[in-house]
Amino acid sequence: MPLKSLIAIVGPTAAGKTDVAIELAKIINGEIISADSMLVYRHMDIGTAKPTFEEMQGIPHHMIDLVEPDEEFSVAMYQSKAEQLIDDITRDGHLPILVGGTGLYVRSVIDHYDFTPPAKENRLREELKSEAARVGAEAMHRKLSEVDPESAERLHPNDLRRVIRALEVYYQTGKTISEYQYIRKEDPPKYNLKMFGLTMDRQLLYKRIEQRVDLMLEKGLVDEVKNLLKQYETWGTALQGLGYKEIVRYLKGECSLEEAAETLKRNTRRFAKRQLTWFRADQRIHWLNMEHFENKKAIAKEIKRQMAGDLLTT
């Protein structure tokens, strides 16, 4: 039985992935599956740069607005839903296009990740909770960085539940939680996959990031965060998203709006750098420098050209 075809468009934040994917979907009869961990949350639109109904241009977008900001959403849940969507879209005669910058979400779909957790060990968990109560969340995060720097980089120090879980998995299995999850590298490919990465000069990307932050503030990011704080007592992981934690500090009086904006720009630049590091390590990605193309339609046409005789004929 032939493998299902899958296109992936990845790259750093503010690179223009969604715009290019929409243009591509229009010319290859595609549907977009978001691989952005923040787009799953409802009511978080401005700070996530969520595409509007008009911006979608009639192209079906999936994995957006799935849960409330105070609900948890895991990569295991994402994997299950995205894989089912690929089946459904393919069955309908369309091409699925996986689009986003959340590296683990992308890999959970294209590679053989198994998110079945080791059994919880109540005694160990309680010991870690007691230690956290004694030394604080930041100390536990530092402890995690010593044994599992990858997870520590991904997790916010205040996300104590996940920090404790990552420590628990390491102490139980002797493996980091990432190593535990990615256990079947030798298996055959899951999909007939074609991956494209969008890139540009680093300084140009940083300029786009700064312009995006300014636009978010113009569109009403502060009011969006203010309304979310009124509506939800707790936000879970959503509170740690770029564009939200910085504005929360401003609303709490811990900094000025100008300082919050500068911090957001700095944090987003650092995030983009981490995304590039993650994706550059994947040799399957065909990189396209956006500065070499006239516009997003030209990039979409180049992607189609590179796919010709491959995905489009399977």
Rank of each mutant, 00 (worst) to 15 (best):
Q57K: 15
L251S: 02
A49M: 11
P12C: 10
L155K: 05
N122E: 12
T237I: 06
I110Y: 03
R125A: 10
L264K: 08
G58T: 05
L205C: 10
V67W: 00
E210D: 15
T48Y: 07
G241R: 07
W235K: 09
T13N: 11
Y170S: 07
P188Y: 08
R161N: 13
L128H: 03
R125K: 10
K26C: 06
R274G: 06
I46N: 09
V213Y: 04
N267E: 15
G136L: 14
T277E: 15
V67K: 08
R165P: 14
E258A: 12
A298Y: 08
L124N: 01
A272F: 06
V109D: 05
L144R: 00
T173L: 12
G197A: 04
G309K: 09
V225I: 14
K81E: 13
Y244R: 05
E210Q: 15
R91D: 08
I177N: 05
V225L: 04
E150V: 12
L24T: 04
E210T: 13
A281E: 09
K273W: 10
I59K: 01
R184C: 09
S74N: 07
S80A: 00
M44G: 04
A119W: 04
C255R: 14
A35M: 02
I46F: 01
I183A: 15
D310Y: 12
D214M: 09
E138K: 12
H62T: 01
G103L: 01
I110C: 03
E23M: 02
N295S: 09
T199G: 10
R270A: 14
V169F: 07
L98C: 06
G16T: 06
V222L: 08
M195R: 10
L66H: 00
A166W: 04
E83P: 06
A308W: 12
N289E: 10
T173A: 10
S37Q: 04
S108N: 12
R184D: 15
R162K: 12
